[in-house]
Structure formats: C-alpha cells, structure tokens
C-alpha cells in the first residue's frame, strides 16, 4: 500500500507544517516508510507553497509522485495547478472559504470545508491547517488520530498555551472528516 499526498496553498497557510506533522507522526509511531518533500526557495516566496508526503509499506521510490491519491488544496491557484495530478477516483480536500470555482473533475471524491472561516471562529486564523489535518485524518485514517495528535502535542511542547486551541481545531476537523466519509 502506498499513499501519495500533495498539500498546496498560500505561504502562511501552514501547508508545510500540515504535511510535516502527518509525515512525522507516521515516522514516530508506525513501521511504515514515509517521505516529506517540500517545495523550496523562490517558489515559496512567490506566495504558494506545496509539499508531498508518501506513506508506504514498501520502500518509497520517488518522494514526489506523478499521480496523487489525495490532494489538499487551500487556494485557487493550487487547485488549478495540481488537480491534473489527482488519480482517477482520488480524493480532493478543499478549503471552500477560498476555493470558489467549480470542481471540474467529476470522478474525484470531494471533501470540502470552509477551514479559513472555521479557524477564525475559533479565534485564530492560523489553525486552519490543523483543522484541515483533522479532516484529512478523520476521512482517511491513514494514520491513527492519537498518533497525529501526539505529534502535534510534542511539536507544540514549547508553547503549551496553544494546545487547547489546537486540540479544538484538530477535533473539529476530525468530526468534519468523519461526517463526510
């Protein structure tokens, strides 16, 4: 089994962190092979950021696959750029607060939620990526939610004040993800 995921959005939406949390959680708590490959350099500064996560029982070949099983898009340009890489019948996770355009791929399973607004409702626009990670885990269960939450907790260790907010965000996402399954 191999899962290829691409996460894409504006710089500042925390797409790298989302990908890294997921990959790191997989590393820490499973025997699976996992890679995280970020876009970097000027490309990042151009306002868009994207990263690739591959989780596999076998050795991971390319850390950047040709075809994505899952695609998370946080903004319109990312949708346009990466929708073509989604496999036939793959799953598309969209931030519907920002992505307003029609999704032309009728074969794709679409999981959508207005994560920017939801984050603002929680009082901090920055947690949109944690909500989205929750949605992704709730929907796919590619790694167990305890493991992912454990990693977030560990990463936020230095800023314990942020834990309750992030926990709320993560759980909100989980619920949405599960409900759309």
């Amino acid at each position: 089994m191999e899962t290829n995921l691409c996460v894409a959005g504006f710089g500042g939406q925390g797409v790298m962190t989302l990908g890294k949390f997921l990959a790191e959680a997989t590393c820490d708590s499973t025997d699976k092979n996992v890679t995280f490959f970020p876009s970097y350099g000027a490309e990042q500064r151009g306002g868009t950021a994207n990263c690739f996560v591959v989780i596999s029982d076998e050795m991971v070949g390319a850390p950047l696959g040709d075809v994505m099983d899952d695609l998370i898009v946080m903004n319109e340009p990312s949708l346009d750029r990466f929708i073509g890489t989604l496999k036939e019948g793959g799953t598309l996770f969209v931030n519907s607060s920002i992505v307003k355009g029609e999704i032309t791929r009728k074969d794709a399973k679409v999981v959508s939620a207005p994560v920017t607004e939801l984050a603002l409702e929680l009082g901090n626009a920055k947690v949109l990526n944690v909500i989205m990670l929750g949605i992704y885990i709730g929907y796919t269960e590619v790694v167990s939610l305890e493991v992912v939450w454990g990693t977030i907790e560990h990463k936020l260790g230095k800023k314990p004040k942020l834990l309750p907010l992030n926990k709320e965000a993560f759980e909100k996402g989980l619920a949405i993800g599960r409900s759309q399954r």
Binding site: N33, F36, F37, P63
Partner: peptide, 9 residues
C-alpha cells in the same frame, strides 16, 4: 537536491 531537502525516517 531531492535527497538534501526531503525528510525521511
């Protein structure tokens, strides 16, 4: 640059 920038266990 791939091996240099990617992360893995």
């Amino acid at each position: 640059g791939v091996i240099g920038t990617m992360m893995e266990p």
